[in-house]
Lab assay of single mutants.
Amino acid sequence: NQASVVANQLIPINTALTLVMMRSEVVTPVGIPAEDIPRLVSMQVSRAVPLGTTLMPDMVKGYA
Rank of each mutant, 00 (worst) to 15 (best):
L40Y: 02
T18W: 03
P33G: 06
I11Q: 01
E25Q: 12
P50C: 04
A7T: 10
A3V: 06
T18P: 00
T28A: 11
P33T: 08
A3F: 13
Q44C: 04
P33V: 10
Q44S: 09
M22W: 02
D36M: 15
P57S: 09
V27C: 04
P57Q: 07
A3R: 14
T18E: 14
V60S: 01
L17S: 00
Q9R: 11
E25C: 04
E35L: 10
E25H: 08
V5K: 01
K61V: 15
T15Q: 07
T54Q: 03
D58H: 07
L10F: 12
N1V: 13
V41G: 02
A3S: 14
E35Y: 12
L51V: 11
V26K: 14
V45I: 07
L55I: 11
A7S: 11
R39N: 07
N8T: 14
L40G: 00
V27P: 01
L10G: 11
T28P: 01
M22Y: 02
Q44R: 09
M59K: 02
G31Y: 02
T53A: 15
A34P: 08
S46F: 06
P50Q: 11
G62R: 06
L17V: 03
Q9P: 01
R39G: 07
T53M: 12
P12W: 04
P29G: 04
Q2T: 14
V20I: 09
I11F: 02
V6A: 03
V41L: 09
A16W: 14
E35M: 14
I32N: 01
V6D: 00
V20H: 08
S24Y: 05
T18M: 15
Q9E: 12
M59L: 06
Y63M: 06
P50L: 07
L40T: 01
T53V: 13
V30D: 11
P33D: 06
T15A: 09
L51K: 13
A3P: 13
I32V: 08
Q44E: 07
V60D: 02
L10T: 15
P29Q: 05
N8L: 06
S42E: 12
N14P: 02
I13C: 04
A64E: 14
Y63I: 04
I11T: 02
D36H: 14
L55E: 00
G62C: 03
A7Q: 01
T53Q: 13
P57G: 11
I37C: 04
T28W: 07
L40N: 00
I32W: 02
G62A: 07
G62L: 10
G31M: 03
T18C: 04
M21H: 08
P12N: 08
Y63W: 14
L19W: 13
V41S: 04
P57H: 08
V49W: 02
T18D: 10
S42M: 07
V60L: 11
P12M: 12
I37D: 00
V45R: 00
M21L: 07
P57E: 11
V26L: 10
T54Y: 02
I11G: 00
M56T: 12
D58K: 12
M56I: 08
V49C: 04
D36N: 15
A48Y: 14
M56W: 05
V20C: 04
N1C: 03
M21E: 02
V60R: 00
L10Q: 11
P33A: 11
P29W: 03
S46G: 12
Y63E: 03
A34Y: 06
R47S: 10
P38V: 08
L55M: 13
Q2H: 15
G62P: 04
M43S: 10
Q9Y: 09
M22A: 00
L10C: 05
L51Q: 07
V30M: 13
T53P: 01
R47Q: 14
T15F: 05
Q9I: 09
I13H: 06
T28M: 14
T28S: 09
L55F: 12
N8K: 11
V5H: 00
G52F: 05
T53H: 13
T18G: 04
L40M: 06
E25L: 07
M21F: 05
I11V: 08
L51R: 09
N1W: 12
V41Q: 06
L40S: 01
I37H: 03
G52W: 05
D58W: 11
A34I: 08
M22Q: 00
S24M: 07
N1K: 11
I32E: 00
V60M: 04
A7W: 02
L17C: 02
V6H: 02
V6M: 05
A64N: 15
M43H: 10
N8E: 08
L19F: 15
K61P: 12
S24N: 09
A64V: 15
E35I: 09
G62W: 06
V20P: 11
Q2L: 15
Y63L: 06
L10M: 11
S46C: 04
M56E: 08
Q2P: 15
V41M: 09
K61D: 11
T53G: 15
R23D: 05
M21Q: 06
G62D: 15
S42N: 12
V45N: 03
D58M: 08
T18V: 06
T28E: 12
M56R: 15
D58S: 10
L19E: 07
G31S: 03
S42T: 10
L55K: 00
Q44N: 08
P12L: 06
V26G: 05
S46M: 13
S42D: 15
V20G: 10
N8W: 04
A3I: 09
Y63V: 04
L17R: 00
L17E: 01
A48Q: 13
V30N: 09
G31R: 02
T28G: 06
D36Q: 12
P38D: 11
E35A: 15
N8H: 15
V26Y: 11
L10Y: 10
L19C: 05
R39H: 07
M59A: 09
A64P: 11
V26E: 06
I13T: 12
A16C: 04
M21K: 03
T18Y: 03
D58A: 13
L17G: 00
L55T: 00
N8A: 11
P33I: 08
T53R: 13
L55N: 01
V5N: 01
S4C: 04
K61Y: 13
M56H: 10
T15I: 09
A16P: 14
M59S: 08
P50K: 12
A16H: 10
D58R: 07
G31C: 03
N8R: 08
Q2C: 04
I11E: 00
M43N: 05
R47H: 14
Q44W: 07
I13V: 12
G31N: 01
S46I: 06
V6N: 01
Q9G: 05
P38F: 14
S42I: 03
I13G: 13
Q9F: 12
V26Q: 13
D58N: 15
L51S: 12
V5P: 01
L19A: 15
V20E: 13
R23T: 08
V49S: 02
E25F: 05
A64D: 13
Q2K: 13
V6E: 02
